[in-house]
């Protein structure tokens, strides 16, 4: 079979600790907030690059967002990917999971002959974890989720995934093409290769595609394509540690802790 073509979906997210909500407008304050590539997506990219090291082929990065995201994606390109595509259009704004998965699927269709689509387990901002299987549905292909490892049987054209389950595992086989989601922190993303970096950071290295380029149905993108609306947004109560000293006899302290467990733990 021809060279493997792998696509890694990558999201640029503001760093969680830095995010604030404007109480008046109920919008996220993004100014001055440092961003990064969604850490689980880095694990997905590492898995793809590792497959490329073993089997050859090429790795394309696919992302959605405004043009300033380019420099973040270029860092991922400098890890050893071959191409980067940024889906960027005002019409994509306000997308929820349904519209996002549609838009990414259109991007993948435009790339053509894709064998494996890699996604991180979830995004640090929305944390829905629903993009991989939604994407697989739009593309009408199989899926392997929560993998910690992947092996290829290129002769048979199947991917064999090692999947983590609660206190156990599963080994699943799915014919290509397939959408894969990768367990967070299952590998260590390589650092940028500085022999590649100057190339990766050249101007124009990122291919930007608009809604028109994707031949996207305007009913399915952005606000229009999003069934859900956010009716209120607020900062969660302070995330600083309480540093509350519990006092009493060991038995009394044990009772106080039982209350803590009741509040904070799954039953």
């Amino acid at each position: 079979m021809p060279d493997l073509h792998m696509v890694v979906c990558v999201k640029v997210v503001p760093k969680s600790e830095e995010i604030r909500v404007d109480p008046e407008t109920m919008h996220l304050i993004r100014e001055g907030v440092r961003s990064e590539i969604n850490p689980p997506d880095m694990n997905a990219l590492e898995m793809a690059l590792d497959l490329k090291d073993r089997h050859g082929g090429r790795v394309s990065l696919l992302s959605m967002g405004p043009p300033p995201f380019e420099t973040y994606l270029q860092a991922a390109l400098a890890m050893g990917a071959d191409h980067v595509y940024l889906l960027s259009d005002r019409a994509f704004a306000g997308a929820d999971t349904l519209a996002t998965t549609y838009t990414l699927a259109q991007g993948i269709r435009k790339l053509g002959d894709v064998d494996i689509v890699f996604c991180g387990e979830e995004s640090a901002d929305g944390a829905t974890g629903q993009v991989p299987s939604g994407l697989a549905e739009w593309l009408n292909v199989g899926q392997l989720t929560l993998l910690t490892n992947i092996e290829m049987d290129l002769k048979r054209g199947v991917a064999r995934g090692h999947r983590e389950l609660k206190g156990g595992y599963e080994i699943l086989e799915v014919p290509l093409p397939v959408v894969v989601s990768v367990t967070t922190a299952c590998n260590e993303p390589r650092f940028m290769d500085y022999r590649i970096k100057p190339w990766a950071f050249e101007a124009g290295r990122v291919t930007v595609w608009t809604a028109g380029d994707l031949d996207a149905d305007e009913n399915h993108i952005g606000f229009n394509g999003s069934p859900t609306v956010v009716s209120s947004l607020a900062e969660a109560p302070s995330r600083e540690r309480k540093k509350q000293f519990l006092e009493g006899s060991p038995a009394e302290i044990a009772q106080l802790l039982l209350n803590v467990f009741r509040e904070d733990l799954p039953q």
Partner: peptide, 24 residues
């Protein structure tokens, strides 16, 4: 449930039904 299988199924079905999904 937002379990591995619950999430997989939810993500697929939401698209197939063309509806929204509030996760976690």
């Amino acid at each position: 449930g937002a379990t591995p299988n619950g999430r997989d199924l939810a993500g697929r079905l939401a698209v197939r039904l063309r509806t929204g999904l509030n996760a976690d």
